[in-house]
Simulated assay, not measured.
Amino acid sequence: MVRTEPNAADRHLIRILARNGLQLSPYQLERWRTVGLIPRLGPHTLLRIGDSKVHPPATAVLVAGLATCAPLCRTQDDLALLAFFNEVPVPPDAVRAALAEVYFPQHAEAREQEYVHLQRIPADHRGEHGPEYDWAEAAAAPDTAEYKAAVRQMRDNLRRRRDLATASRAELDGRVRGVLIWLNMPALPVHDSEFMADLRAAMAFSGSPENSRAAWLLAAVCHSQQLAKGSETCAQERRETLLAVTDEELGALREQVRESMDAMWFMATEGRSRHFRIESSGDARQAGRMLAEWTTARHAFPSGSRPAQVLVDSLCSLWYLCSTDTVGEGRAAFEHRTRPPHRAP
């Protein structure tokens, strides 16, 4: 229930939206003002027309956009992001707050999952190949569980190799796991001919695209981090970086994220669709997390880099590496580094 009756300006706004088929209640307006999605009432937020005061056109456009998106959202943060990514002029402070709310809990949860997987490595093997390897192994475990289509494609592609045609599921899964571990390392072991043969087969760049697109996407995202300038950040630094983004930058970052999502969607649909429509709160959260991540990650790439181009460059780099035969340490050394004996499955 609202604390007071809606004023004349609010009643006028509600009538305008109703004529356009949008339902809006005084309670919604009050809630949106409280969380900063629309301006608070004041002498500078209303227009005087004759003896009446009404909301300016900019506020009417904002409220109409929020009312359009609201039925698709459960929380005010979801509403702020869905409206923002659909060009509704949401106040920048509300957008920054929503980005922080959807990004940092998920980021902390992901790090916690990696820590859990790290602790599952037997103590006598932990650190055997260095802390970077352990963390890469911990990061590969949730990748295996989350990106099942990519894992399945890598496994099927490996089986197409003549010497793996009759390999067991366990062996193929082990090779996929090795590929994912090294994709999560700071750099690929390009001089390890046995590993590169596995990577080349798993990616199957020379094969039918529909057999590998999911694998390409996952590998390109991981490999892009290997092409970046390495640096350590903490949650506090990431939060400060996000909250320091200017209003102008926020709009530019939105376009870069949408461009990146279009590129990934184009690849995922095998070229059938060029534009990804952000039409749900889940889509908006995904886009919001990408934007929040890019505010920090962009500093690891040359100035002016865009995430879509980073993805394409990463995929091209993988294609080049997989098109070049290399000579390295061999299968025995690779197995020693990627599947230590007695390691828990």
Rank of each mutant, 00 (worst) to 15 (best):
D134M: 01
R74W: 00
L253S: 06
D77P: 01
A64R: 13
D93F: 09
L82C: 08
N211V: 01
R74C: 07
T68W: 07
S206R: 14
W135G: 02
E248A: 14
V88R: 14
R337W: 11
R31V: 08
D78Y: 04
T166V: 11
R213W: 01
P189S: 08
H191Y: 06
S25E: 13
D192P: 01
Y115V: 08
W182C: 06
Q153T: 08
S280M: 08
I14G: 07
A123P: 00
F334A: 15
L99V: 04
H223S: 07
P186F: 05
L315A: 15
P57S: 06
F276M: 12
S168T: 15
E329Y: 11
S305I: 04
E335Q: 14
E240M: 06
L62Y: 10
R96N: 09
D93P: 00
G288S: 05
L315C: 10
A292W: 04
S224Q: 10
G36Y: 07
D283V: 01
I121T: 15
D325T: 11
E87T: 06
E335N: 12
Q225S: 05
E240N: 08
P307A: 10
P189K: 10
V221M: 08
A252H: 11
E101W: 02
L118W: 15
R120V: 04
S206Q: 11
E146Q: 12
E255K: 07
L188C: 05
R111K: 08
A300V: 02
N157R: 14
T241P: 00
R96L: 15
V95H: 12
R277S: 15
E171D: 13
W32G: 07
D51L: 05
H125L: 14
A300D: 14
W294C: 05
A170E: 15
T68N: 07
D93K: 14
E232H: 11
R337V: 02
A9K: 03
T45H: 05
A60Y: 06
L62Q: 13
H191Q: 12
I49Q: 14
W182V: 03
T75A: 13
A97W: 02
L250F: 10
H129A: 06
L242T: 08
A80W: 07
W216L: 13
V327D: 04
L318H: 09
W182P: 00
P209E: 03
D10F: 00
L315I: 03
A297V: 10
L72D: 12
R160L: 11
D93E: 13
A214W: 02
W216F: 09
M185Y: 01
Y147C: 12
E30V: 05
N157H: 09
T34W: 04
T45A: 07
A141Y: 09
V310T: 13
T324H: 13
F301V: 06
T246A: 06
Y147L: 07
T59K: 04
H55M: 02
H191G: 01
I49A: 13
H129R: 10
R126P: 05
P189E: 04
C234I: 09
N157Q: 11
E114N: 03
S280W: 02
M264T: 13
P122T: 04
A220F: 03
T59D: 07
G304K: 13
P92H: 10
S206P: 00
S25F: 02
I14E: 07
L17A: 02
M154Y: 05
F276V: 04
H107Y: 13
V221P: 00
A170T: 14
V116L: 09
